[in-house]
C-alpha cells in the first residue's frame, strides 16, 4: 500500500518537474510546480510527517504558488521562444551535474550504514511531538530564524517604500 502510493506520487512528482521545464507557457509551468509541491506533501505524509505535509500544501501549494500565478497573470507573460540554451550550460552544466551525482552516490554507498533507514508509514510524528521539539528543545534557533525572516520582511518594506 505504502509502496504503491510512494511509486504513484513519486512518479507524479518527477513528471510534474519535467513538465515544468518542458512547458513553454509560464502559467503551465507554474501549475506543474503546484503538482510537484502537492505530491511532495503526499511523500512527507508517507514518511509520517503529517504537520509538514499539511504545511507544505497550505504554504507552498496554496499561498506561494497563488502569488506566482498572480504575478504571471498581472504581467500577462506570453509564450517563450524555444532556444538551445546557453553554451555554458552545455559545457559546464552536464559534466558538473554528473560529477555531483557521482559524488553523492559514492558517499551514500560507502556510508550507508551510518544513516537511519526510514520506512514509509511505520512511524508518525504527530503535531504535539513536533511542537515539543520546536518550542521547548530548539526554542532559541526557532526564534532566531523567525527574527531572520522578520529582517527580510523589513528589508522588503524598506526597498518597496517610495522616496518622499
Amino acid at each position: 500500500m505504502h509502496l504503491a502510493l510512494f511509486c504513484i506520487f513519486g512518479a507524479l512528482c518527477v513528471a510534474g518537474a519535467l513538465n515544468l521545464l518542458l512547458q513553454r507557457h509560464p502559467i503551465n509551468s507554474a501549475l506543474s510546480l503546484i503538482v510537484v509541491m502537492s505530491s511532495l506533501a503526499v511523500l512527507y505524509l508517507l514518511l509520517g510527517a503529517e504537520f509538514l505535509a499539511a504545511a507544505q500544501v497550505i504554504v507552498y501549494s496554496g499561498a506561494i504558488m497563488v502569488l506566482f500565478t498572480f504575478v504571471i497573470m498581472l504581467l500577462n507573460a506570453g509564450r517563450e521562444q524555444r532556444t538551445h540554451g546557453s553554451k555554458m550550460a552545455w559545457v559546464l552544466g552536464f559534466p558538473g551535474a554528473a560529477v555531483l551525482l557521482a559524488l553523492l552516490a559514492d558517499i551514500f554507498i560507502t556510508h550507508s550504514g551510518d544513516f537511519h533507514r526510514v520506512q514509509a508509514g511505520e512511524y508518525v510524528v504527530n503535531t504535539a511531538m513536533l511542537s515539543g521539539v520546536l518550542f521547548r528543545d530548539l526554542l532559541l534557533p526557532f526564534e532566531v530564524t523567525s527574527i531572520l525572516i522578520l529582517i527580510a520582511i523589513l528589508g522588503a518594506v524598506a526597498l518597496a517604500r517610495k522616496e518622499h
Binding site: 502537492s38 500544501v57 496554496g62 499561498a63 497563488v66
Partner: peptide, 8 residues
C-alpha cells in the same frame, strides 16, 4: 489546505 487549493 483544501481551501487554499480551491483558489486556483
Amino acid at each position: 489546505g483544501i481551501t487554499s487549493i480551491g483558489v486556483y
